[in-house]
Design a protein around this nucleic acid. Sequence first.
DNA 1: TCTGGGGTCCTAGGACCC
DNA 2: TCTGGGGTCCTAGGACCC
Length: 433
Amino acid sequence: MFDYRQEPVRTIMMIDSKSFYASVESVERGLNPLKSILVVISHAPNTGGGGLVLAASPMAKKLYGISNVSRYYELPDDPRLLKVPPRMNLYIKKNLEINAIYQKYAAREDIHVYSIDESMLDLTKSWHLYGRNPQETARQIQQEVRAKMGIYTSVGLGDNPLLAKLAMDIEAKHSNSLMATWHYQTIPDTIWKIQNLTDVWGIGQRTAVRLGKLGITNMYQLAHTDPYALQANMGVIGAQLFATAWGIDRSIIAQKYQPVSKSYGNSQVLPRNYDQAPEIEVVLREIAEQVGARIRKRHLQTGLVTISLGQAQKSAKTGRAFYSHQTRITPTNLNDELTQVVIGLFRAHWTGAPLRNLSVSYGELTTDQNQQLNFFETTQIQVQRRKRDFVIDRLRQQYGFKTVVKASSLLRGGTAIQRAGLVGGHNGGNSYE
DNA sequence: TCTGGGGTCCTAGGACCC
DNA sequence: TCTGGGGTCCTAGGACCC
């Protein structure tokens, strides 16, 4: 069907730090990450102490069937099981150290940090410097990370990024060697053997159901369906899925991924249902300013503000729990302007139904070389406001969030003070304000 | 499981323009 | 003026990933 001679053949390595958070916590305690029985569990202040398992060690998974979405109350009451709080800042630091090791093996532009525990390396030009074949080089990287960091890694090798990622997800993670290699030539024995569509990167529950309606329930069937019918049915996604089934991925790491963020946003689940506009607005202001600080730190301005409101219950009318609204604005990164837009969106669109989830996101980012002045206020006032925002940002970076707190955050409903020190909504681990 | 949190990409339909 | 046609921009929603 496909003439693979036309496809790019590279040596791509997808590396995943096994049970990363749990492994870091094990190593910090002098335990072997494969033998320890440990879970990292978040006590988010907003979920009433319910707690959510962010990571479980392999043995914890095996012995108790704990998964990464287990809740605190589902955990067994067994003293052998270590339950530890997350330290997000530590994981970020360890991730940087691991990637520094990778940089010995591949040039910076040939490394793509995919997530906090996954990186993709293009070793086409460099693998031969370290081993007689790519597998030997991969083994050496695994050993070095294990020796220096105590962390085990799963490695998928492939002729392109897609094959490497699938080799890692589907085979390497579950094999004893923690390594697997997938080539174009072995697709019938690898991709086409995948029975569960949702195991495949890019196919979630909804897509699996849609494919099921077309009579497609595994990867072999997907590869042997009529691609034109698929595309007619599912658009670009259909074409992409078909390519995936044949292991086709024409991207090259150095070209495909530009690390520039397109948007920044924060969201949070509220500690209870909020049904009063003033207390909802307090939290929206807090989030609006939190995201504002993030874009100011990167010297960006936003031209597109989006809020998303999650209801306590699905709407009887629409059947949905979430709705979002956005608006374009003259680019800014000033708190007063951002909060004004966010609150304006809220007041224009809130249905009045109780809310449990709030989010604010800033897109259309541009650099803030020059401040856009508006027509309604004097230049002096606007410049002062900008300075004030930056001064507060610096104080908080140095001395902690609570150094400067808005009076409104002390009102009923505010969550910012409680959440100070969280990283990605979880405990940063080195913040004792 | 949208009652964890932070992102990206795609699509349908409407507004608006010529 | 849903009965001409093409194009762009914008918004809201859906789906997926880690």
